[in-house]
């Protein structure tokens, strides 16, 4: 049995330690907000936080993740009210929406480490996340907006 601590909840799962975290989260734990896009850490649709870092769960094996603190999009906030989630809604960022769990999880690490990101910081943090619908201009806008919200302490 492998112990996974996901969103502050412990899950005991019976799985091959070589299984990527992505499939354990989706198929065995049943949290489907984390997406499969490429399987080789190219697109970022599968980003979750592992001890606070934006890891690509499609290449992160259970043996690395077990016993660690894992946060998925479902656990980013209780009421969909993380500044990024609010900003994403304000700016109507998503189109198809499939990549945005990963986009938001990447941006969340950015905002912790750079609370007032410049455009260059956003490039540096977000270039690992592909959006086929091309919502990039709005992702940028929403990250700036979320940073503002954070600064004002309103959320």
């Amino acid at each position: 049995m492998i112990k996974l601590n996901i969103n502050q909840k412990v899950h005991q799962i019976d799985a091959d330690p070589e299984m990527p975290l992505l499939w354990a989260i989706r198929d065995l734990v049943g949290l489907t907000g984390t997406k499969f896009g490429c399987g080789v850490a190219q697109c970022g649709a599968c980003v979750v936080h592992l001890n606070g870092e934006a890891v690509r769960s499609c290449v992160t094996k259970l043996k690395r993740a077990q016993g660690q603190q894992i946060t998925t999009i479902e656990g980013l906030s209780e009421n969909n009210d993380h500044p990024l989630q609010i900003a994403w809604n304000e700016v109507s960022v998503p189109q198809c929406g499939y990549c945005h769990s990963g986009q938001i999880m990447s941006a969340a690490v950015l905002l912790i480490e750079k609370p007032n990101p410049t455009d260059e910081d956003i490039d540096n943090a977000m270039a690992g996340n592909i959006c086929r619908c091309g919502t990039y201009p709005r992702i940028r806008k929403a990250i700036h907006m979320a940073a503002e919200m954070q600064k004002k302490g309103g959320v």
């Binding site: 870092e53 690490v109 690992g128």
Partner: peptide, 10 residues
């Protein structure tokens, strides 16, 4: 930021 080496490199 969200692009640490070990986010992808295992």
């Amino acid at each position: 930021l969200s692009m640490k080496c070990t986010n992808c490199h295992q």
